[in-house]
Design a protein around this nucleic acid. Structure first.
Lengths: 137, 137
DNA sequence: GCAGAGTTGAGAACGATTATCAATACCTAT
DNA sequence: ATAGGTATTGATAATCGTTCTCAACTCTGC
């Protein structure tokens, strides 16, 4: 079960690193295909799943139900501020919220608390441009 | 475009009200079918979408990508504390988090901020029962 | 009761994701 | 460097949740 290094995996990792915000597996695949590589869709999904599993990438569900991925610069636990128009993403710390979540959970008898905390909005650029639709990077 | 009252819509609303936690459209449909009603799957989806649109129900995406619905007792904006084993749900207030989200968004130039804040854990009962399910880090 | 517009339900269609499986490419031991 | 076992790939089929289609149906107001 030893992992092997393939140009496909590297390509996916590189493409993720080049993205400013979250991207879907589909759009990553499309981009890689456009770059001339003959990479397969299934391979992109597998590579992304691996990256997410090893903690090298974060993933979240878009409001539309798609799985989005991102290579995060900040290691460890953090949250995201995401532009719902261009998907530009800013990593944010939220110690305040960590404490709140933990306190709230235990005050209701819940254990093993985890939380999903993401803020969506329109970034400065999209606000200025009045961009109404979502653009997939 | 006047809305009509049909027993189907009422059934969906009632079934939602009877649920302690979030449920998927599929399982709601299955339950209604088992109750002898010949309700259609598409109708359940439509009714749930309507309820969510009018604010009579809340919805969220399960970590597996399914859409889950719930008839919430608290009107207005609130968040949820959800047992990841039995889906028991507690509605929680989070003024603290509202403020934080708004402040964080605007400090990064983001406008029209909305946020997804949900806490997952194991409820007291499931913790005691040792119900071990998947892990959501 | 009647007409007509909103609703329903069975199944087709759809999009995202996962499974299949023969062909291929990577890695390690020679 | 080479060979060979095996993880990986990729085209395609399959799966799953959800939405669409459209003829049949049923509320509601008159």
């Amino acid at each position: 079960m030893a992992k092997r290094n393939t140009w496909q995996r590297d390509s996916v990792r590189d493409a993720l690193d080049d993205s400013a915000g979250f991207v879907s597996a589909q759009s990553l695949h499309a981009r890689l295909r456009d770059d001339g590589t003959g990479i397969g869709l299934a391979t992109v999904y597998r590579a992304l799943a691996d990256l997410a599993a090893t903690g090298d990438a974060d993933s979240l569900q878009s409001p539309e139900g798609e799985s989005l991925y991102r290579a995060c610069r900040t290691p460890g636990h953090h949250h995201h501020l995401i532009c719902r128009s261009c998907l530009l993403t800013v990593e944010i710390e939220a110690d305040e919220v960590e404490v709140w979540a933990q306190r709230t959970a235990s005050s209701h008898g819940f254990t093993e608390a985890a939380h999903i905390v993401d803020v969506f909005g329109l970034c400065a650029a999209c606000t200025a441009a009045g961009t109404a639709e979502r653009v997939t990077p």
